[in-house]
Design a protein around this nucleic acid. Structure first.
Lengths: 338, 338
DNA sequence: CTGTTAGCGCATTCAA
DNA sequence: TTGAATGCGCTAACAG
């Protein structure tokens, strides 16, 4: 392995001078600088970050913890995160928690061991708090995206769940729906709680009584909503939902699939609105009404806040960015009923 | 920061003993082992990998270089890679080259600096060879996925482009198509070359003369195929394509969009078959006939080969895994013509 | 502007 | 079974 000493010897300078040239620190004469740079190129020298980290306590490695990169929402988060990280000279480690706090904990240990400079986290659920505290205990900054955690004061990039949910619900209500079911993720996830609360609030505002039979809980990942839907369909005629509000993309997709299997027409039989976009690859295909969140910006801005925190350019007070979603009304919900 | 010396002092042993407990190396009495482990837990000690790397020359960090993580194909590659890496105790760095050799080169430098243990690469194109040689020069093992590089002997996980292309083409031919256009990626990418060659060969086998006017080149990313399609539509009636073979997902999607904009019916006006699946999220939506590659396995197996190479359990000879694709015949190509 | 010394946290080597 | 000395490659602090 080529080291700064090899460079130093060949260039007839000290190792320190080589170090200074590499880091552009201190004053170096143009002459020696050029000489050193020539040797570096000649020997194809690339600094060893491990050695550097040991002294500087900086790895220039950031980490992204998502629940599942194959969720298109998180795919775009990752892309935004990576772009900003690269732009700022950082690399990005990818972690999938699978909504599992234990797996998340294991990752956190590895990240701490790696001495990552900071972590952008979409926490599995409220119990992730312990894992995050562990990070903090080791002096590693973090920023939350998508999901917040109760009683945890920190930088966050979140979605405006209240407004967005209200818009989706009011769209359904404007179509004449009164029996609107919600198929939600687990309530220990903040986004599930907020969307549920906004669901309740919107019904109330519009004088529609809340029917607990229409409130279903599923998973945000590996969601199989068929039992929930069977349950809904077995309700007496007067309670049976004419519309379903799915609180994330996987739930929305699973709902579409299940209704198709049951040969229930969308939107005539049951209308659907869903949170999150699924990529509208070919335009001709999408029929699902969705609230599309600016996923790329979650990652991009999240990394920006994180780097500001790491490099000490952030204000001491925690910052909270709340982003709006784009509502795309499509065929799955366009059908007026009495 | 807590170090092994802090642990050693508190446990009344030497630092070396602590190191041995952590690494499960050498013989340690049960008693001291328990004592040390208790102190480690108490002080919440986590080893510093930078220090460890400096000695062992192992980072337990693997890297994945793809052209764009938002391409669903690579999203699944990443997921497979991450799963296998995690299972084997490695972390995964994510890099997007954007099909750009210079950006790829910059990443390579960072990866070398980080002393990644190995890299799983979908190279931008044949010119990536220089970047890969740079890796090798620094003793970093690598495995190619999806795309190979001419005259580069190394472990690879590739797709059976010949068989798959032939199946797609013969499906079109069986529907009566003779004027079949191909919209391809740049020929400096191996997959583009192989799919083109198989396109030519299949035509030949079936006695259909190759018409150069039906051969279009676009991009695998940011593909705007509208000019290509306009060109195809301006051909005289006798040459005008009745079917299009798109050689990757982005090209396939762009083709669908463009035809829709031009109000050309698929498959009646023009039939389409495409390489790569686009995730069939809601089942009801997909109409595109595709050859779906086992993306997850590209990542999973690629990392497996890579780790075997790193840990010295691989045979010296380069290995080449060729995976088949699943053909999904859908509406976009089901329409017999004269 | 340049060099010397020291030490980051840990594992390898050798000795006990 | 345990410990002491040494050095991985680099930079911070100081000296010149």
């Amino acid at each position: 392995m080529v080291t700064i000493y090899d460079i130093a010897k060949k260039a007839n300078v000290s190792a320190m001078t080589v170090s200074r040239v590499i880091n552009k620190s201190g004053k170096i004469s143009d002459e020696t600088k050029k000489k050193v740079e020539a040797v570096i190129k000649e020997l194809n020298y690339i600094p060893n970050n491990s050695a550097r980290n040991l002294i500087t306590n900086k790895t220039k490695i950031l980490s992204l913890m998502v629940t599942d990169i194959t969720n298109p929402f998180f795919t775009n988060v990752a892309r935004g995160a990576e772009d900003k990280a690269m732009q700022m000279g950082y690399q990005l480690l990818l972690c999938n928690s699978d909504e599992n706090v234990e797996k998340e904990a294991k990752y956190m240990e590895m990240l701490i061991s790696t001495r990552t400079d900071g972590v952008l986290i979409a926490p599995a659920n409220d119990s992730s708090k312990r894992n995050i505290r562990n990070l903090s205990k080791h002096g590693i900054p973090f920023v939350l995206i998508d999901r917040n955690i109760q009683d945890l004061e920190c930088d966050q990039v979140l979605s405006d769940n209240e407004t967005t949910t209200r818009k989706l619900m009011e769209h359904l209500i404007s179509q004449g729906h009164k029996n609107i079911a919600i198929i939600n993720g687990p309530l220990e996830v903040s986004t599930a709680r907020e969307r549920y609360q906004a669901y309740i609030d919107t019904l109330k505002i519009h004088g529609i009584p809340l029917n607990r039979n229409l409130v279903m809980e599923s998973e945000f990942r590996d969601s199989d909503v068929s039992s929930a839907i069977h349950h809904l369909l077995e309700l007496p005629e007067s309670e049976r939902p004419t519309a379903i509000f799915a609180t994330n993309n996987f739930i929305g997709m699973s709902t579409m699939k299940t209704l198709k299997k049951l040969k229930i027409k969308v939107p005539e039989g049951i209308a659907i609105v869903s949170y999150d976009g699924i990529p509208n690859y070919t335009e001709s295909e999408s029929i699902l009404t969705v609230a599309e969140q600016p996923a790329y910006n979650f990652g991009y801005l999240g990394i920006q806040l994180l780097i500001e925190r790491i490099e000490g350019t952030a204000p001491e007070k925690a910052r909270k960015i709340v982003l709006p979603a784009d509502i795309h009304i499509r065929a799955s919900s366009i059908h007026k009923i009495e």
